[in-house]
Design a protein around this nucleic acid. Structure first.
Length: 408
RNA sequence: GGGUCGGUGCCCGAGUGGUUAAUGGGGGCGGACUGUAAAUCCGCUGGCUCUGCCUACGUUGGUUCAAAUCCAACCCGGCCCA
């Protein structure tokens, strides 16, 4: 399912360890050294989602085959922002924000957990290097930067679709954005990567890495380009900034509920890319397929028991019997400790975190979207004297959001 | 550096002195419907324990009873020229 780059055609390709991955593997094996598999992630958000998990699953497969995963936390490049797939200049992140994000990434990848249950193997010696690219990128001086810049050309950069689109439509492109592919490529030089993993949209960046490695006298890396997972909307790629993701850290219920609602058009893609199921053996009814996919993906992350429970709970939620059902056990609790009584309904909603603001809460109540223990609230000014009147009850916003109120 | 056009709410984009928290789309959130979703229809889409008060049209000042709308300076962007 992955594309290799370069493909390695031509007369002598099959034996050239720079053109044919199998030749490189043989060579490494004879030399008794593992390959260095580079995967870079920019800690621009705080969640790893299913789109990323494709890459990590592949990286783990390399680890299990005895190779060294070189995970690069792009703490420096994140501050520039990868222009790939972007139609506007990215907001630059602060160093502190990047640090926080990087930390949560590692936890989600399984740092501190046993390899059997985690996405990456953090424990077996020699299987994982975690590097931050600020380590070497902050040390570059101007002559070195100029050297990097001299390796590529303006027309090469403008040939990249994202840049040409923006240039063509008159959107601004800052010069520093041209630096991104070069810096990412320089990462490959610094860690001496044999192979870089990435989505198919990373081909340009991987190719730049090869150019730079050659320039600095190293043998160029291979690129293994994995398909891009479509997002929940079924149209655009799964991406945090588009809000169409399923996060690995999400609880089974929300993971399942999101997945069982994806467009029919991407159900098969998810089955192929995220599960090991055989498509031919699956039911043809689209709804059945969809639910099976959601269940299987949730199982892979949370285990069969939790996934099955999530499926049951999801069914109960839509049929509207959530209040007292088993699902209620999983409902988030909200403390009334921070609420100042007497509390009016709209204030309660915002104080408990169900609505972003009290004005929004007021509107939701007026719109008929709020229930308390299954009973619709109609008056935003309805007053509650004290916590005793509310403790233990379930406050509901819309069909999917619940909070069980607890005293203290 | 010169010329020119422009910067409006999450995004796009109307509005060129006065019922303007600011038309209209998109997106989002809620409601109805359905096999979930989509599509469709309806409501909402600054904040505040709210029948009132506060903050908003790049920034800062100014003119005026009154400014997103006029003036000045500055900041930022597009295009053309250098």
């Amino acid at each position: 399912m992955a594309d290799l780059f370069p493909i390695g055609t031509g007369a002598d390709a099959s034996s050239d360890p720079d053109q044919q991955l199998s030749a490189r593997l043989d060579q490494a094996k004879r030399a008794g050294r593992p390959l260095r598999i580079k995967l870079g992630i920019d800690p621009t958000g705080s969640d790893i989602h299913l789109g990323h998990s494709l890459l990590f699953r592949k990286l783990r497969a390399f680890q299990d085959a005895g190779h060294t995963a070189v995970l690069i936390i792009g703490d420096f490049t994140a501050r520039i922002g990868d222009p790939t797939g972007k139609s506007a200049t990215r907001v630059q992140l602060s160093a502190a924000q990047v640090d926080v994000n990087a930390e949560t990434y590692l936890v989600q990848l399984g740092m501190g957990q046993a390899p059997a249950h985690s996405l990456l193997d953090f424990e077996t010696p020699g299987r994982l290097e975690v590097r931050r690219n600020s380590e070497w990128l902050t040390a570059l001086d101007l002559p070195q930067v100029i050297e990097l810049l001299s390796i590529s050309t303006v027309s090469q950069m403008l040939a990249k679709e994202d840049f040409s689109n923006r240039y063509g439509s008159g959107a601004p492109i800052s010069l520093h954005e041209f630096l991104y592919p070069l810096l990412q490529g320089y990462d490959s030089v610094h860690v001496q990567a044999d192979l870089e993993l990435g989505g198919t949209d990373q081909k340009f960046n991987v190719a730049i890495g090869r150019d730079l490695q050659r320039h600095f006298g190293q043998r160029p890396q291979f690129g293994m380009l994995l398909p891009i997972l479509p997002g929940l909307d079924g149209v655009q790629k799964m991406s945090k900034s588009l809000g169409n993701t399923v996060g690995l850290a999400e609880d089974p219920l929300s993971m399942y509920s999101k997945l069982e609602k994806v467009s029919d058009s991407v159900v098969d893609d998810y089955l192929i890319l995220l599960t090991d199921l055989d498509l031919a053996s699956l039911p043809h009814n689209p709804r059945e397929r969809q639910k099976l996919m959601a269940l299987e993906v949730t199982r892979a992350r949370h285990g069969a028991a939790a996934a099955d429970a999530a499926q049951l709970d999801a069914a109960k939620l839509v049929s509207g019997v959530a209040g007292s059902s088993a699902a209620a056990a999983e409902v988030l609790e909200a403390s009334l400790a921070a609420v100042n009584f007497p509390a009016r309904a709209f204030y309660l909603l915002s104080a408990v975190g169900l609505c972003a603001s009290s004005s929004e809460a007021r509107r939701q109540i007026q719109g008929g979207g709020v229930k308390l223990d299954g009973e619709k609230l109609t008056d935003p000014n309805q007053e509650f004297a004290g916590p005793e009147a509310l403790a233990g009850k379930v406050l509901q916003l819309g069909k999917k959001t619940f909070r069980r109120l607890v005293a203290g």
